[in-house]
C-alpha cells in the first residue's frame, strides 16, 4: 500500500513537473513571439499596384466566388480621355458606351461626360470582378490611373492568400492593418 502510495506520489510529482515545464515553455514562447512581433498587430493582404502586371489571376484564384479584388480609380491621375484605353476595346467601333465598344467583361466601368472633351470613368464595384483588363489597357497606353486593390471589406484574410500564391509578380503583400490600402496616386510614382 505504501509502495502504491509512493508510486502515485511519484507519478503526481512527474506530472506536475511536466506541466510546469510545459506551462513555462508555452509562456516563454509566447513572450518570445510577443517580443518579436512587429509594431502592427495585424496584417492584411494587399496588392502593390506598382508591381501588379494585371495578369487576371485575381479574378480566378480568390477563394471567394466573386474575387475580393476590385479595380480602383485614382481620379487625380486620370487623363479623363475621350479614348480611354481602359474602357474601350483596342479597336472600338466608336467611342460610345455601346456594349460592343467596352473592354470590361462585366460592364463595371461607368463613363460619364463632364465637358468637352473630358469623360469621367468610375468603377461600379459590385460588378467588378478584378480581372484587370482595364488596368492592363490603362497602364499600357495611358496614365495608369486604374489599378487593382483587395477590397478589405470582402477579403477573408486567409492565413495564406490563394491569389498571392498564384501572383506572377509577387505583388500581393502583407500590409499592416493600419494601412489597408496602397493607393496609387498617394504612394505613386515620382512626383
Amino acid at each position: 500500500m505504501a509502495e502504491n502510495q509512493r508510486k502515485i506520489d511519484r507519478r503526481k510529482f512527474v506530472g506536475d513537473g511536466l506541466r510546469i515545464v510545459g506551462a513555462v515553455g508555452i509562456a516563454g514562447a509566447t513572450g518570445f513571439w510577443a517580443g518579436r512581433r512587429a509594431e502592427d498587430d495585424d496584417n492584411l493582404w494587399q496588392i502593390d499596384p506598382h508591381q501588379c502586371v494585371a495578369c487576371g489571376n485575381c479574378a480566378t484564384h480568390c477563394v471567394l466566388d466573386k474575387s475580393a479584388v476590385v479595380c480602383k480609380h485614382a481620379y487625380a491621375m486620370c487623363g479623363y480621355c475621350n479614348l480611354c484605353t481602359g474602357y474601350f476595346e483596342p479597336d472600338a467601333n466608336e467611342l460610345t458606351t455601346g456594349a460592343e465598344n467596352q473592354l470590361c467583361p462585366t460592364g463595371a466601368i461607368r463613363r460619364t461626360f463632364i465637358e468637352d472633351p473630358y469623360y469621367e470613368y468610375a468603377i461600379d464595384e459590385p460588378l467588378c470582378i478584378g480581372c484587370g483588363k482595364c488596368v492592363k489597357g490603362c497602364t499600357a497606353f495611358g496614365n495608369g490611373s486604374l489599378y487593382l486593390q483587395i477590397d478589405q471589406d470582402r477579403c477573408m484574410h486567409c492565413n495564406e492568400c490563394a491569389i498571392a500564391i498564384a501572383c506572377p509578380s509577387e505583388a500581393i503583400k502583407r500590409v499592416p492593418a493600419g494601412k489597408p490600402y496602397l493607393p496609387k496616386d498617394q504612394n505613386g510614382g515620382p512626383a
Binding site: N57, A59, P90, P105, K133, A140, A166, P168
Partner: peptide
C-alpha cells in the same frame, strides 16, 4: 489541388488581354 504557384500558365486564357498582337 493546386500545389504551388501556377507559374506554368496552364490556366485557360480567361480575362486575357493580349497587347503584343496590337
Amino acid at each position: 489541388t493546386d500545389s504551388g504557384p501556377p507559374a506554368r500558365n496552364t490556366l485557360p486564357p480567361s480575362f486575357d488581354y493580349d497587347l503584343s498582337s496590337l
